[in-house]
Design a protein around this nucleic acid. Structure first.
Lengths: 199, 199
DNA sequence: TGGCAACCATACGCTTGCGTATTGATACGG
DNA sequence: CCGTATCAATACGCAAGCGTATGGTTGCCA
């Protein structure tokens, strides 16, 4: 018997990141309101005492989780797809990549669930603005006027948001469509003309 | 001074329907979780005592509100658009009507927000199933095979759901697109071919 | 005018969750 | 070996909400 003490620590001491990660999972599954300190502590096998050592309060944890997501976002989108010169190809690659990143899509849908929460609104707004602006610019580069570029970008974004909303709320309905790539291909072909054109 | 009593009743006694309506509004704005008895009573100018006279408990109110919505749904969709014989026209009319019914769209988006709630899931599932089935059948009538009909129906439904989700979470982004009918027209033209075809 | 039914107020107990305070337990450097 | 920093348990006070119990007020009707 090495250390037959009264109550062994949960193996390893908990890091701040562990709390943030657990909170992110909870947000992705049940929204921000589900991030409650005591249940979360129970889930992690500790008590509130631990939490309030790592964080000032519940808000700090929530912001940390949202912040982490936003960091990923910016890193991905801007750097990865901004480099593709041809706007036609840039859009297609972005569309396919967006639908393939299921994790991110689900988290986004979860944020939409908590859109009333004043804490998430800034993050949601920034993400939407960034993504839409990215799309608008690409469509403008394809030769569309501002108005039509906006419309097409919104269309694409709505298709994206709607897909992951449905995947969240009624996965069975989505599962009936076996070929996701066909779905995305249709979206791309609708919005991105095969040849350049001017309006 | 007709009736200068101590404390006038809120003019008229509250009907059960008044509670349901207020609850529906709350759901549409802040989701099911926001339907709390005491705040709602405060809003209506009465106290809990009134509520628990009209309803067994909170669940009964929530179900009543969801039930009312489902009734409207079934009535509208099936009867109004089922009568149009030409599937091409049926689909186009349905699409335009769906996007124009902002109230219903907002309520649907609000239900998606509360999709984790076991109370709303059945209603959400039934609505989705009904609508998708309606779309699939119309596309099949246009000559598409089952698989492609499903894909197109899902596409249309996702565009619908996504649009109202964005309208809910980030209305500014949607407001930038002034011409909604262009959006819907594009959707219709993408999905509904001008002429019949076989696959 | 007495009584009953509809409608509502008040007061209470219970649970969940936040945040604080205080006190342990462990590890590690001097 | 001791002290300090790190991490966690326990106990407490507080607020919001649900649901119950009980009593009060109004209107109508016999």
């Amino acid at each position: 018997m090495p250390t037959p003490k009264k109550k062994a620590r949960p193996v390893a001491p908990l890091s701040r990141e562990a709390w943030v990660k657990a909170a992110s999972n909870l947000i992705a599954q049940e929204g921000v309101k589900a991030v409650a300190v005591e249940p979360l502590a129970l889930l992690l096998g500790v008590t509130k005492g631990s939490f309030y050592w790592h964080f000032q309060n519940r808000d700090e944890l929530i912001h940390a989780a949202l912040e982490a997501w936003e960091q990923d976002q910016s890193a991905d989108v801007v750097s990865r797809y901004g480099g593709i010169a041809d706007p036609r190809r840039r859009l297609r690659v972005l569309l396919f990549a967006a639908f393939e990143d299921v994790e991110n899509g689900k988290f986004f849908a979860a944020l939409a669930v908590s859109s009333e929460d004043p804490r998430v609104q800034p993050y949601l707004h920034r993400a939407t603005e960034r993504r839409l602006a990215f799309g608008v610019e690409a469509f403008r580069a394809l030769g569309f006027l501002e108005a039509e570029a906006r419309e097409r970008a919104l269309f694409a974004y709505a298709a994206y948001a709607g897909y992951f909303q449905l995947l969240r709320t009624t996965p069975e309905a989505v599962a009936a469509v076996t070929d996701l790539s066909g779905y995305v291909r249709r979206l791309a072909e609708t919005l991105v003309p095969a040849r350049a054109r001017r309006s």
